[in-house]
């Protein structure tokens, strides 16, 4: 019971991530009525759970940043992150759960007197810039590739519609998988060192303790998608630039690729083994990848009608989100430690 209470903050964080971030994958498809919400939500839910359970490559970097080895501490960190997300959303400020959790871990380090590796912080912070930039470049390049393909193939408008629809489903599923694989480290990453779950083995289904933990987190994200993402999906896409269904497909491709680059352990190892530059495996904001991608498409279309304020808002989030999370984490840990008398030392 107490485990469930401690995990509730992570489940809430996962739920809110699902409610908000699934729109970065399926929002444009649902908003432009290329896919029904129920189809998108089911696909997203299933593949997020699979991605969360099988993936989770970005967790290691979070562990290096700070080891939260007490269940109550992990609860405090995720609760602070969830509160940060809620406050920032309420204030209408851009927010990313991944940045909030990083702020939370730094807050934990400060509170327990653990040193924070500044090189790692810089590395993580650099991904906040790389993420939307990379997404923008991918979308820009993909735009010309897709346009050339469609123009050369002289595909019928109706068939193009069917191809786009199938593309949105297939790539959307890939994107949802990567959203789960990348995002789960923000939701459950801090619980890895205080994981309350045992490994399970039911013959065909065999999951390690960490996979069980991530499965639970993935389920919370999926619930967020199914119960609360419809409204966000219906409104997403038109904030920065109005997209056509093919434009939406390009954005989904680009976001999925960026999420994949930042969460695939096998790709990371492959690049390293071939002496190629690899990106750090860290949880990133799919919203920022989505904004970068939409701007990439808009730039490829000569950049008219772009709402550039969205870019300025992202950079505000780079500072305000982790800082707020640090402050709230320290406050919550103080409350748990000194007022409620919860033990925060392993």
């Amino acid at each position: 019971m107490i485990t469930l209470v401690f995990l509730s903050s992570a489940l809430f964080l996962g739920w809110s991530m699902g409610a908000n971030d699934a729109a970065n994958i399926f929002g444009t498809a649902v908003g432009s009525r290329m896919l029904k919400f129920i189809t998108a939500a089911t696909l997203a839910g299933v593949f997020i759970v699979i991605g969360s359970t099988v993936g989770g490559g970005a967790t290691e970097t979070l562990s290096k940043l700070g080891s939260v080895n007490v269940l109550a501490g992990a609860f405090g960190v995720t609760l602070a992150s969830a509160i940060t997300v809620a406050i920032m959303t309420k204030l209408g400020l851009p927010v990313s759960s991944s940045q909030a959790i990083i702020g939370g871990i730094i807050g934990w380090n400060i509170y327990v007197g653990q040193p924070t590796e500044m090189r790692l912080v810089t590395k993580i912070a650099s991904t906040w810039l790389i993420n939307p930039l990379l997404a923008m470049i991918f979308a820009f390049v993909l735009f010309f590739i897709v346009r050339t393909l469609f123009n050369r193939s002289r595909i019928h408008l109706l068939r193009r519609d069917s191809v786009t629809r199938v593309g949105l489903i297939v790539i959307g599923a890939f994107g949802a998988y990567n959203l789960g694989a990348n995002g789960i480290s923000s939701v459950m990453g801090v619980f890895v060192h205080s994981n309350p779950f045992p490994a399970i083995n039911y013959g065909v289904i065999s999951l390690s303790a960490q996979q069980v933990l991530f499965f639970v987190g993935g389920f919370a994200i999926a619930m967020g998608v199914i119960t609360y993402s419809r409204k966000v999906m219906m409104t997403v896409g038109s904030d920065i630039y109005r997209l056509s269904p093919v434009g939406a497909l390009i954005v989904v491709m680009s976001v999925s690729m960026v999420l994949f680059l930042f969460s695939s352990r096998s790709l990371h190892d492959f690049l390293i083994s071939h002496n190629l530059p690899a990106l750090p495996l860290v949880p990133i904001s799919s919203s920022q990848a989505s904004v970068g991608s939409v701007i990439g498409v808009a730039l490829a279309k000569k950049g008219r009608n772009i709402n550039l304020r969205a870019l300025g808002r992202i950079s505000i989030g780079w500072l305000s989100t982790p800082l707020t999370a640090v402050v709230i984490t320290v406050a919550i840990l103080f409350l748990l430690d000194h007022i409620l008398g919860v033990n925060l030392i392993a």
């Binding site: 432009s32 009525r33 290329m34 029904k36 408008l157 109706l158 519609d161 069917s162 056509s244 269904p245």
Partner: peptide
């Protein structure tokens, strides 16, 4: 069949 939602009206 919810086809070509963006071009349906034009067609």
């Amino acid at each position: 069949e919810m086809l070509i939602p963006d071009a349906r009206g034009d067609v």
